[in-house]
Design a protein around this nucleic acid. Structure first.
Lengths: 158, 158
DNA sequence: ACACCTTTGTTCGAATTTGAACAACAGGAG
DNA sequence: CTCCTGTTGTTCAAATTCGAACAAAGGTGT
């Protein structure tokens, strides 16, 4: 037999995919971070918080739910929401049905800042990622990484 | 005309690709971070440093070159190399041809720790990403994200 | 040799992130 | 109702990250 305890290393194609994924992710994040900060004074994380809130019914989400969507820690979210609250872009509201619960809600100013920040951000995402890929590549990426995400979500909860 | 100043927003397919990319990246990083830390006491970043060094001729790289490969800041690398040096996994060596230059070099112990950490890490990357995708999806991902990375590298230098 | 501009790696302070510990509460079985 | 278990959001200390500023060299053209 060829290898019983030997791990299955990545072949060149697999390695290329993995390295490409990691590198693209890092480079992209760096760029978006810089652009958002300079252009709107927001970090990528803060921008994403505003986006998720604006997409939610009532422009508000429970802290835990928001943390899940952002894929971040609860404590990390607490910190960022506090920052956004100081900037006046988000406000906290207690939950009627659960005394422990806290809603993060988009303020009018938050909505306005997001509206102003979005075009530049989307344009860059387009320039650096979307428009670099063909329609087919985009479809494969969406389906493949969608499946990867879905599986990762699963064995995290149980 | 339909829209002159209106930005080109992402259509559903594009949005799915973008969200999938961001989410998969975050979830994956989280998992790998946890596994590496528990299994080998290394952060993902530290692991990557060891990997890049072991792949380099002479098991060593200049600080700047290494920072580029890792897609991180110079100061961030300085910090991590110092940590790895304290752990005895990496050592600094001055460059003969350039007094300012500093080589980060893998120590024997560093090579050993990497050898011990690699199988578990690769197995998880395989389980969570590689083996979830088909051969074709992998090829598309490698080529697409490779191109994305290449372009990002370009307009960063000038 | 000289001024001039770039590179190299580190240092510094500020901002962010994380996991563990925690207090307060919800929800259900008995 | 009461005990028990799981949730919720925050706090805390520690670790990490970044960018700007910096000192020390390289390299170039004159």
């Amino acid at each position: 037999m060829s290898s019983l305890n030997e791990p299955r290393w990545l072949d060149p194609d697999e390695m290329a995919a993995w390295r490409g994924f990691v590198t693209a992710s890092n480079l992209l994040n760096r760029r978006l971070e810089r652009q958002l900060k300079e252009d709107s004074g927001l970090s990528h994380q803060q921008y994403e918080i505003l986006v998720h809130l604006s997409a939610a019914p009532g422009d508000s989400l429970r802290m835990t739910e928001l943390a899940d969507k952002l894929v971040t820690s609860k404590s990390g979210l607490t910190y960022q929401v506090t920052q956004l609250e100081r900037m006046g872009l988000v406000s906290r509201r207690s939950c009627p049905s659960d005394v422990r619960g806290v809603f993060a809600e988009l303020t009018d100013q938050g909505r306005e800042v997001l509206r102003q920040a979005a075009p530049g951000h989307v344009a860059l995402v387009r320039e650096l990622l979307i428009d670099v890929l063909t329609r087919d590549q985009l479809a494969v990426l969406a389906e493949g990484l969608g499946e990867v995400s879905a599986r990762l979500r699963l064995d995290e909860t149980p």
